[in-house]
C-alpha cells in the first residue's frame, strides 16, 4: 500500500530485457545461440570464408579430406567445405523467410477465425484440419512435385504445410483472450472488438507464437533439406545441404560427401531447438521464475 513498494517496483526489468539476459542463465541456449551466430557469420562471409568457388569443378573427384580440401571433394571435383559454407546462404535465409511467412499467414487466419467465429471459424479450421490430415512431409512432397522441382516451390510447399499450426495456436489464444476480463473491461470502455484484438490480445499471444516460430525454424530447415534431398527442392548445381546429402548417399563409401552437409543440418536444427526451448521456458511464467533467480 505504501509509496515505497511502488518505487521499488519500478526498477524491475521489462520482459524484453529479461528475455535478452536469459541465455546467460541457461547454457544450452548459449550453445544454440553460439552455433546460430556462427552459421550466420559464415553465411554472410561465405565468399571470403570459403576456400574456393562452390561451383568450380577444378579438383580431382571424390578426394578424401586433406590439407588442401578439409572436407574432401565431391563427385564433380567440387570442394565440399566451400559448398557447405555456401549452403548456409541458402538454408538459413530461406528457413527464416519460410517461418516468417507461415507465422504471418497462420496468425492472420487464426486471429480472423477466433475473432469472427461462426462460419468463418469453421471454414478456416476445416481447411487447417485438411492440411493436418496428411503427414507434413508427404503433403509438402505432393505440392512441391505438383508445382515443379524448384527451390521456390519447395518453400511454398513447406509454408502451405506449416501455417495451420500457427492458425490453431493463435485461434485458441484469441478465443481465450476474447472472454478475459481485461478485454471485457476494455470493451466496456468503448474499445471495438478489433481494437482489443490489436491492443489487448496481441501482446499477450505474441510470446507463445514467437516460441513456436523459434522452435519451427529448425523444423523448416529439415523439411526444406528433405525436399531437396528427394530432388524436389534445390536443383544442381546449387550448393544446398539436402541435395548434397543426396549426392553423398549415392557415393556412400565416400563418407565425407554426405557427412559434412548432414552435420551442418544437424547443428543448425539442434541449435534452433535449444534456443526455442529456452525461449519457451523464459516466456512461460511458471518456469520463468526459476530462470530469473
Amino acid at each position: 500500500m505504501s509509496a515505497g513498494s511502488v518505487q521499488a517496483a519500478t526498477v524491475t526489468t521489462p520482459d524484453v530485457a529479461r528475455a535478452a539476459r536469459a541465455p546467460w542463465r541457461s547454457p544450452l541456449a548459449l550453445v544454440g545461440l553460439t552455433i546460430i551466430v556462427g552459421w550466420l557469420v559464415l553465411a554472410v562471409l561465405a565468399p571470403w570464408a570459403a576456400p574456393s568457388d562452390p561451383l568450380a569443378q577444378d579438383a580431382a573427384i571424390l578426394q578424401a579430406p586433406s590439407g588442401a580440401h578439409w572436407f574432401g571433394t565431391d563427385e564433380l571435383g567440387r570442394d565440399v567445405l566451400s559448398r557447405v559454407v555456401h549452403g548456409a546462404r541458402i538454408s538459413l535465409p530461406l528457413a527464416f523467410v519460410l517461418v516468417a511467412a507461415s507465422t504471418l499467414i497462420g496468425s492472420v487466419v487464426g486471429a480472423v477465425a477466433g475473432f469472427f467465429g461462426r462460419w468463418v471459424d469453421s471454414v478456416a479450421m476445416r481447411l487447417a484440419d485438411l492440411v493436418f490430415a496428411f503427414p507434413g512431409i508427404i503433403l509438402a512432397l505432393a505440392i512441391a512435385a505438383a508445382l515443379g522441382p524448384q527451390l521456390r516451390n519447395a518453400v511454398i510447399a513447406v509454408v502451405i504445410v506449416s501455417w495451420p499450426g500457427y492458425a490453431r495456436l493463435v485461434r485458441s489464444l484469441v478465443l481465450a483472450a476474447r472472454t478475459s476480463q481485461y478485454v471485457v473491461s476494455s470493451r466496456l470502455l468503448g474499445a471495438s472488438g478489433l481494437r482489443t484484438l490489436f491492443v489487448d490480445v496481441r501482446p499477450n499471444i505474441a510470446g507463445p507464437v514467437l516460441v513456436m516460430s523459434a522452435l519451427d525454424i529448425g523444423n523448416a530447415v529439415l523439411l526444406l533439406s528433405g525436399l531437396s534431398f528427394l530432388g524436389l527442392g534445390a536443383q544442381p548445381p546449387t550448393p544446398e545441404w539436402g541435395a548434397m546429402v543426396a549426392a553423398g548417399s549415392q557415393n556412400f563409401d565416400r563418407w565425407w560427401v554426405g557427412l559434412f552437409p548432414g552435420l551442418a543440418i544437424l547443428t543448425v536444427v539442434l541449435a534452433f531447438n535449444f534456443v526455442g526451448d529456452t525461449l519457451r521456458d523464459v516466456l512461460d511464467p511458471r518456469t520463468a521464475r526459476a530462470l530469473r533467480e
Binding site: Y182, G190, P203
Partner: peptide, 20 residues
C-alpha cells in the same frame, strides 16, 4: 453514451492487461 455505465470486476489480477 453507454461509456458512462461501467463495471468493476471481482478479480483485479485478470481485469487488467498484464502486458500494458
Amino acid at each position: 453514451r453507454l461509456r458512462r455505465l461501467q463495471m468493476v470486476f471481482q478479480d483485479p489480477y485478470s481485469s487488467l492487461n498484464p502486458r500494458r
